[in-house]
Amino acid sequence: MNTKDDLIKIFSLKLRTILGKLIIDYDKLQEIRLRMNAPLLIIYGNQEFFVTEDARLTDNPSKGVTITKNEIRETMEYISNYSLYAFEEEIKQGFITISGGHRIGIAGKIIIEDDVIKGMKHISFINIRLAHQVKGCADAVIPYILVNHRQGIYHTLIISPPRCGKTTMLRDIIRQLSNGNSKFAGMSVGVVDERSEIGACYMGTPQNELGIRTDILDCCPKAKGMLMLIRSMSPQIIAVDEIGSKEEIDAIDYVIGCGCKLIATVHGSSIEDIKSKPTLCELVHKRLFERYIILSNTKEVGHLEAIYDAEGKPLYSC
């Protein structure tokens, strides 16, 4: 089933008709946002557009088709196959992963008991983030993170602003290192996929190809997951997306101390930007990361700006 078929079937009948007539390249479609009493909005080619009743793109919000309460309700029924209860655990985390690996973010009234999130009701906001796997996008960086064919990889941090391809890059690095090739042996990779974005598991099965030697902990907090993988799966490499909390930094220290290599991503635009973050600056000062990969969208999403070593010496620049 192709991307368009995967997506169209989850929307209300009215939105399904409109989106089905929309003439776009689905490889460039990043997000579809439904907000009650607001215009239908998409992120396409890293730009924001509204969708009209006659299936055209416009930058004028007043011309966008208005999302009603019924459109939200009907769409959620299709997403959950008329059983939100079956997705209770996912809803507590604010998202549902569907076939194809696409992630449905949801927001509404949170139900809390004893400071614990028990569920959500009156869902009024839906964000469909499309899963894009770009095989080969890490070709240029792989030679810089490999020590050699026997000694594994350097501890690597991918730095990128939002929507600039860091998860896509991470995904392809994992796949290539796990599979190996004629130049280097495949390695055992453990992935902590807290938000189901890396492997995009659907009913336990990864929708994205992460390689033949990869194990995934899906919907697991990163700090706890890293420790679990070390104790149970003996990975040579651990990969996580969007690090930042003190607990995660402590877990990274433990992982590195155990001799396991680490690949992680973080929001930012430069090494200096990371140094300004209280929880991350210590990692930079300790030189725990041996490679820094900087991405941007200056030319295209996922554009490789530079690669630096632990001391900040440029190894590659565009």
Rank of each mutant, 00 (worst) to 15 (best):
C219W: 00
K246Y: 03
R231A: 05
Y202I: 07
E209L: 08
V255E: 14
D172C: 08
C201Y: 01
M169T: 02
L227I: 11
Y202V: 13
G190K: 01
K246N: 09
S269I: 13
I230S: 05
S234A: 14
I263S: 13
S178Q: 02
L227A: 10
I237D: 10
Y254T: 14
G268T: 05
E209M: 09
D253M: 14
V255G: 14
S178F: 02
D253S: 11
K166H: 06
C219S: 10
I263Q: 12
E197G: 04
V189F: 00
E272M: 12
R195Q: 05
C260K: 13
M228H: 06
C219H: 06
M233F: 06
D253P: 10
I174H: 05
I271G: 15
K222E: 04
S245V: 01
L170M: 04
H267L: 07
I237V: 15
D250Y: 13
E272I: 11
E194G: 03
P235C: 08
G259E: 07
D241E: 10
G268F: 06
G268Q: 13
G211K: 09
L227R: 08
P206T: 05
P206Y: 03
S270E: 11
E197R: 00
I263L: 15
E197K: 03
G190T: 01
I256T: 15
D253W: 13
I271M: 15
F184Y: 14
C260W: 09
T205G: 01
M233Y: 02
G244W: 01
R231P: 06
F184K: 05
G259F: 09
M203S: 11
Q176H: 01
M228T: 08
H267K: 07
R175E: 12
V266T: 03
G244L: 04
L229A: 05
T167C: 01
D250G: 08
L210T: 08
S232L: 10
A264S: 15
G199P: 12
V189R: 00
I173A: 11
D172S: 06
A200D: 03
V266W: 05
T265H: 11
D253L: 14
N181I: 02
A264G: 05
C201I: 00
E209S: 12
Q176T: 07
I263V: 14
C220W: 06
K183Y: 08
I174R: 09
I198F: 07
G257C: 15
Y254Q: 15
N179I: 01
R231Q: 06
C201L: 08
G259P: 02
G199Q: 07
T265F: 08
Y254D: 14
G190F: 04
L177Q: 02
N181G: 10
Y254E: 15
G180H: 09
E209D: 15
C219V: 04
E209F: 12
L229D: 07
D253C: 14
Q176S: 12
Y202S: 07
K222W: 02
N208D: 08
N208I: 08
A185L: 12
A200P: 10
S245M: 02
I249H: 06
S178A: 01
V192H: 02
